[in-house]
Amino acid sequence: MFNAPAPIDIDVSDQEMQLFQQLFRQHVGLHLPDSKKALLHSRLAGRMNELRLGSLGEYHALIARPSATAERQRAIDLITTNETYFFREQRHFDFLKEQLLPTLGIVSHLKVWSAASSSGEEAYSLAMLLGEQRRQAAWSVFASDISQRVLSFGRRGLYPMARGQNIPEAYLKRYCLCGTGKYEGHFLIAPELRRKVQFEQRNLMDLSQDADQQYDIIFLRNVIIYFDFETKVEVIRAVTRKLKQGGHLIVGHSESLHGMPLDLQMLSPSIYWKSR
């Protein structure tokens, strides 16, 4: 028998906090305020114990190396918040169903981007709605996130049954398969829906690899709240360059683009239209 190693006590100094603030801003644009010292400590302590590192300075030195791509990604996964659920902020889906999608029947292949998709609930919510509203027309959903960990959950499409409480009954029956045996208490997104949702890692600070891609609708919800104003403007401009003329950008209800120099017209506080 071997005794488990004693937990390492981590105290976050101002200097260490500044190092991580600079690193996360550089790589993902994340604004980590000084008030988040406790969060930094709690999110990274377990991993540092695994690596037998005694200070945050040592861990920063490790993940700051250019070659430390995998460990740096792991730290980003630990720090970033991935709270989501199916049909979150229902009014956006009501807008799509009742006002927007009926006007897009002439679009031969409707392309939607879930730009901060987390573990896939938003992307599959969009897919269910499109599957119902465009049964005879082509559509696809591109789902992206900075975190490889949550993207793997999205690709799998397997969720605890409790996560489906906001999914309309008709969608549950049509697009969700009830698990049995070891998957009892879970549901799986139907294969025909999963085939139309593509999950890929994207950093909103660098979208150069998708230079020619254009979308009719972009969901960028509950992510820019983690950026400072300058980074918000940079990200929104980069994202809206992927939006077709006449396309729609939808942000979270708690987010605002007020005061940003953007070529967008506000239709409601969280729904914007690219007029040119």
Rank of each mutant, 00 (worst) to 15 (best):
Y85M: 05
Q201D: 02
D94C: 01
D210F: 04
L129W: 07
H92M: 03
G105F: 00
K182F: 03
V150S: 03
L188F: 13
R155F: 00
S147N: 06
N203G: 06
S147F: 08
R174C: 04
D145H: 07
A170E: 14
L129M: 08
P102K: 01
E132T: 09
K97G: 08
S152E: 12
I167Q: 10
Q214Y: 05
A211E: 14
P102D: 05
L100Y: 12
A190S: 15
E132I: 01
G164S: 11
G181S: 05
L207D: 03
A211V: 11
V141Q: 11
K196I: 01
L78Y: 03
S108A: 09
R88A: 00
W139E: 04
M205H: 02
E121Y: 10
I218K: 05
S125D: 11
Q165V: 14
L188R: 14
A115N: 02
C176R: 10
E83K: 14
F219V: 01
E184W: 04
G157H: 12
S114C: 12
Y124H: 13
L158I: 15
D94E: 15
F142Y: 11
V112S: 07
S117T: 15
T180H: 09
F199N: 04
V112Y: 02
Q201L: 03
A137W: 00
V197K: 08
E122S: 04
E121M: 10
Q214V: 13
L158N: 11
F87G: 06
T81F: 01
Q214H: 12
F142S: 07
E200G: 00
L207Y: 02
V150I: 09
P168T: 08
V112E: 11
Y183S: 12
A211R: 10
I217N: 06
A162Y: 12
R149T: 11
A115R: 00
Q165P: 02
Q90R: 15
L204F: 11
S144F: 03
A211W: 04
A115S: 12
G154W: 06
R195C: 06
L110R: 05
I218E: 01
T84K: 09
I106V: 09
Q148N: 14
D94K: 10
L110Q: 04
V112W: 04
F86L: 11
P168G: 07
S152R: 12
D206K: 09
L130F: 07
I218F: 09
S119K: 03
E169I: 03
A137L: 11
A116F: 06
G164L: 15
Y215H: 09
D212N: 15
F187S: 12
V141E: 12
L96I: 07
A123Y: 06
H186S: 13
L100S: 04
S125M: 12
L193R: 05
T84V: 05
Y124A: 06
G105C: 00
